[in-house]
Amino acid sequence: MSEIADLKAALIADIAAADTLDSVEALRVGALGKNGVVTGLLKTLGGMSPDERLEKGPPIQDLREAVTVAIADKKAALEQAALDARLASERIDMTLPVDLGPQGSVHPVSQVMDELTEIFADLGFSVATGPEIEDDWHNFTALNIPETHPARAMHDTFYFPDLNDAGQKMLLRTHTSPVQIRTMMNGTPPPIRIIAPGRVYRSDSDATHTPMFHQIEGLVIDKGITLGHLKWTLETFLKAFFEREDIVLRLRPSYFPFTEPSVEVDVGYTLTNGQRVIGGDGDAANGGWLEVLGSGMVNRKVIEACGLDPDEWQGFAFGTGVDRLAMLKYGMNDLRAFFDGDQRWLKHYGFSALDVPTLSGGVGA
C-alpha cells in the first residue's frame, strides 16, 4: 500500500508543479490515459481474488479520484491565470466609434409613399385601401370602362381562370381606382377626400414599366367642385413633393372613361448639365414638359354607379405612379432596378429609417 501512497504523492506533486496546460495534459495522459500508470493499476483488479480486491481496490480508486481532481483543479487555475493576464494586458478604447455592422435602409418607394401620405394629410385627405385581387365590376364596369376597352384585354390584364361566387371575372387590379368605388359605396356620405396608394399589376415590362408597380390615386367628392379645385390641389401637392415653388403645370385635354372632362398634367422642367430638373417654365429656351399625372372630373356615370346623385355631388380624381415620382425626384433611370434587390443600388438610393423621418431628407442619406 505504501507504493500506491508514494505514487499518489509523486503524481500530485508533479501536477502542482506543472506551469502550462500542455504539461498538465501530458501528466493526465501518463496517469489516466489508456496506458497510464493509474489505469494499469485499475486493470490489475480484474485478476484479483475477491478478498484482494476488497483490500487493494479502495486505495487504487482513491488514487484515481485524487489525480483526477488535482488535474481538473490545476487546469482551472492555469486557465484563470491566463484570463487574468489577458484582461490585465488588453484594454478597450471607449472613445473609438462603435461598428454598427450591416444597416438596412428604407426603400425609395416606401419613402415616397410616406412623403405623399404626409403631404395629402396636410391637405385634409385620408388614406383608403382595398383588395389587390379585384372583380371585373369594381375594376372596370363601375368605372365606365366598356367591355371593348383595350385595358380589359388579356395582354394588358392578369385574369384568374375561375369566376367568383357571383359569376364575375377575378383579376389583379390594374389601378387603385376600385378603392374609390368601394369608398363611395361603403355608406359614408360625402364629402369624401381620400388617397388610395398601393400595388397594381399590368402585363408590361421595360425600362419604365414593370408587371407590378405602385400607384397613388386621389378622389374628392363634394358640392360645387370644379377643375380649379383640381388644379390647385395638384399644384400644391407637386410643389410640396419636389420642394420647389417654381412648379408650373400644363393641363392638356385627354380622355379617361371614368372622368369627364379629363386632363393630362405636365410639369415644367429645365435642363441643367444635361439632366432634367423639375421646376421652371417648360416653354423656356432650356426647358420642356413632362407628363406626371392623369386626372379629371369624376364622370356622372361613375357617381351614379356608386349610388350618389351627380346633380348634387361632383368631384375630381387623379392618379400617378409612385415609382415614376421617385425616379423624377431622386434621379433614377430604370424602373426595373426598384425590384432587383441589388444591395448596391439600395445602399445608394435607400433612406435611413432614423435619419430621414420626413421629406426633408435626401437620397443616399
Rank of each mutant, 00 (worst) to 15 (best):
D323P: 03
C306H: 06
G287C: 03
R182H: 12
D165R: 15
S177L: 12
K74V: 08
P97M: 13
I278H: 03
A77V: 11
V29H: 04
P50R: 01
D14F: 00
S360L: 12
P59C: 03
T176I: 13
T117I: 09
N333M: 11
E118Q: 09
M297E: 14
L354R: 15
K74L: 03
A153Q: 13
V265Y: 04
A81N: 04
S262H: 06
E118P: 00
L227C: 08
D136P: 02
S2H: 14
A17G: 09
Q215L: 02
D311N: 08
T95R: 15
P102N: 08
A76K: 11
K347S: 09
L335F: 09
K223H: 07
D162F: 11
E291G: 02
I15R: 00
G33K: 11
V302S: 03
F237D: 00
A142Y: 02
F241N: 01
A240C: 03
L32A: 07
V220P: 02
G296W: 03
K169M: 14
P357H: 08
E3K: 13
P310H: 06
L163V: 10
T188P: 00
E217M: 01
D311S: 10
F351A: 12
K75L: 02
G287H: 01
M327S: 11
M332E: 02
G341A: 10
R300E: 14
Y349P: 00
I145Y: 00
D99C: 12
I303C: 04
G224R: 12
A153K: 11
A196R: 06
S105W: 13
K75C: 01
A128I: 01
R53L: 02
D266F: 07
A353H: 14
E3I: 07
V267N: 03
E134G: 04
A142P: 04
W345M: 05
L271K: 14
E147Q: 06
